[in-house]
Simulated assay, not measured.
Amino acid sequence: MTATLSLTAAPGRVGAYARLAKLDVWDYYLALPLAWSLAGAAAWFTPAVLGTLAAFGVGTVCVVSAAVAFDDVTGHRDGSDAANYGPDAPARKLARKPLLTGELAEADAIRFGWAAASAGALLWALAAVLAPFSALWTVGLLALCLVTAVQYSWGVKLSYHGWQEVFLAGFGVGLVLVGVGLTAGAPSEFAVVQSVLFGLGPLLFGVYSNTRDADGDAAVGRKTAAVLLSRQGNKAFIVALTLAEIALIVTAAGLGAAPWWFAIAMAPAVFLRVAQLRRGVGLGDLLRARLLGLWAHRATVATLIAINLTIALGARP
């Protein structure tokens, strides 16, 4: 009987760890196909590039899983997750917090976090060894991404000391630049533009979540922009980020870093971003705005990949 119970409980346990790792939110992982598309047509299917991106990609899943697991432990300890998820559990999907539901204990989550971080570090090191290019700046940026991800809500707790927004964008930028650096060497101006657009994606759905969570975060001393700024100041901050993204798209095309038709191709993603701004800042529907932000980010990445494929294939003899 005991063996039967343990076997039937196993799938639920695995599911709890999957929810702890937030595997249903995969937007940072889109850095991998984006970096692949920037490697160039001649390198797309070479064993070195595919092996490098495979190790880097699985390692990225491990590193992000560690970061969000530690974030859940800290949020459980200080009560911010209970405050932010308790009053509106159906909309916020309380099941995504297995520490709050009691499916996992803190010790389970901590062990999982360190195991995932260790696996991620090893896989990222393997990616650097396999890579066609391993410039010092790439390895250094890889190490910075690892350390800051683990320290996001653990150790020095970067997200509690005013660095959350910087990390949300910077980590995404770093993933794309590392992927490009490992597979293609020094990034082009257009690759840098794309890495910044990619980094703005997680930031521009994170700020809406932070606005929704401002009271709970303030109560535990988590200094997000939504906590530090006034309500109107936070709205202005979100508007400024949205306009900065649109301005980057337009100026990249206008100044020659991107093809002249780049802004036209990006129009659907820009439309979604404007719709997100209207929904979140104009109408105050923060959770819907966050969802629109996810779709805007995914549309942006899909469009960038299509543009890169078009350029690379068009340049082939």
Rank of each mutant, 00 (worst) to 15 (best):
residue 75 G to I: 14
residue 292 L to I: 13
residue 262 F to E: 00
residue 313 L to W: 11
residue 111 R to N: 05
residue 98 P to D: 02
residue 79 G to W: 00
residue 83 A to V: 06
residue 154 W to K: 08
residue 290 R to H: 12
residue 109 A to L: 02
residue 21 A to D: 08
residue 134 S to Y: 06
residue 39 A to K: 02
residue 20 L to Q: 00
residue 208 Y to A: 14
residue 316 R to S: 15
residue 236 A to P: 02
residue 13 R to C: 02
residue 260 W to A: 15
residue 118 S to G: 15
residue 136 L to T: 12
residue 191 A to P: 07
residue 222 R to C: 01
residue 152 Y to D: 02
residue 142 L to F: 10
residue 261 W to D: 15
residue 299 A to W: 07
residue 57 G to F: 05
residue 36 W to T: 07
residue 294 L to T: 11
residue 88 D to A: 15
residue 141 L to I: 05
residue 8 T to E: 11
residue 98 P to F: 00
residue 292 L to E: 04
residue 228 L to D: 13
residue 150 V to T: 01
residue 235 K to R: 14
residue 262 F to Q: 05
residue 254 G to P: 03
residue 111 R to A: 06
residue 27 D to G: 12
residue 47 P to Q: 00
residue 257 A to L: 13
residue 144 L to I: 09
residue 269 A to K: 13
residue 138 T to A: 15
residue 134 S to C: 15
residue 153 S to G: 05
residue 223 K to I: 10
residue 235 K to Y: 08
residue 17 Y to D: 04
residue 131 A to Y: 02
residue 192 V to K: 10
residue 62 C to R: 09
residue 172 G to T: 01
residue 114 W to T: 04
residue 291 L to V: 13
residue 160 Y to H: 00
residue 156 V to A: 15
residue 147 V to P: 04
residue 177 L to D: 01
residue 240 A to E: 14
residue 93 K to V: 12
residue 210 N to I: 11
residue 284 G to S: 01
residue 290 R to C: 10
residue 127 A to T: 03
residue 294 L to H: 12
residue 15 G to T: 04
residue 225 A to M: 09
residue 131 A to S: 03
residue 121 A to R: 04
residue 136 L to F: 10
residue 301 V to L: 08
residue 89 A to L: 07
residue 239 V to I: 15
residue 113 G to K: 03
residue 44 W to K: 11
residue 72 D to Q: 08
residue 106 E to V: 05
residue 40 G to D: 03
residue 100 L to Y: 13
residue 6 S to F: 11
residue 314 G to C: 01
residue 265 A to C: 14
residue 89 A to N: 07
residue 110 I to D: 15
residue 63 V to N: 02
residue 176 V to Y: 08
residue 288 R to W: 04
residue 260 W to C: 07
residue 123 L to S: 00
residue 35 A to G: 11
residue 299 A to G: 07
residue 289 A to L: 03
residue 244 A to W: 06
residue 164 Q to Y: 09
residue 211 T to D: 12
residue 291 L to Y: 08
residue 239 V to G: 13
residue 40 G to S: 04
residue 157 K to D: 07
residue 195 S to I: 03
residue 220 V to G: 00
residue 221 G to E: 07
residue 178 V to N: 03
residue 152 Y to F: 13
residue 44 W to R: 04
residue 309 L to T: 04
residue 6 S to Q: 12
residue 253 A to M: 09
residue 256 G to D: 05
residue 177 L to K: 02
residue 287 L to E: 07
residue 123 L to K: 00
residue 239 V to A: 06
residue 219 A to V: 05
residue 48 A to Q: 08
residue 76 H to V: 06
residue 19 R to W: 08
residue 261 W to T: 11
residue 272 L to P: 02
residue 227 V to F: 04
